[in-house]
């Protein structure tokens, strides 16, 4: 059997239906990566400005952070940044893994696993935020 015969005998790779993820989910994942990416440019810009430039000479201390996040607006911005950054980062990881054949074959457990990691990281971050608010001490 020649190499060509063997290749022809194999089922065609990449036929529609080989993806283990629905087409709608694939399009959503792509779309959300773009939306969160653009949002991150804005939110990170705000985050960076506030932490490092808004008050020249101000030192990053517990008290200073506390003063900031006690404002509802900043508590919301920080929470949104946290959620959006985690989503964008982990969805990016998913994209990288799916770029490998072996990764694409575990697409579904991978997605579930990354959601668990992401939600845990979100809870962990909110926990820290609550510490600044004095809810946990």
């Amino acid at each position: 059997m020649t190499v060509a015969d063997e290749a022809l005998a194999k089922p065609p790779a990449g036929a529609p239906g080989n993806a283990r993820v629905s087409r709608r989910a694939a399009t959503w994942a792509w779309l959300w990566q773009r939306l969160t990416g653009v949002l991150l440019v804005v939110l990170l810009g705000v985050h960076f400005w506030v932490e490092h430039y808004a008050q020249p000479g101000a030192v990053l201390t517990f008290q200073n952070v506390q003063l900031r996040v006690q404002t509802l607006l900043f508590a919301l911005i920080d929470s949104l940044l946290l959620a959006v950054a985690i989503f964008h980062g982990l969805n990016g990881v998913r994209m990288v893994v799916l770029d490998f054949r072996a990764g694409a074959r575990i697409a579904r457990p991978l997605t579930v696993g990354l959601w668990i990691v992401g939600l845990a990281a979100l809870a962990f971050g909110i926990h820290t935020l609550l510490a600044f608010l004095g809810v946990i001490a």
Partner: peptide, 9 residues
């Protein structure tokens, strides 16, 4: 064309 082994790669 729009599966994970399609345009999104």
């Amino acid at each position: 064309l729009s599966g994970e082994d399609g345009i999104y790669r």
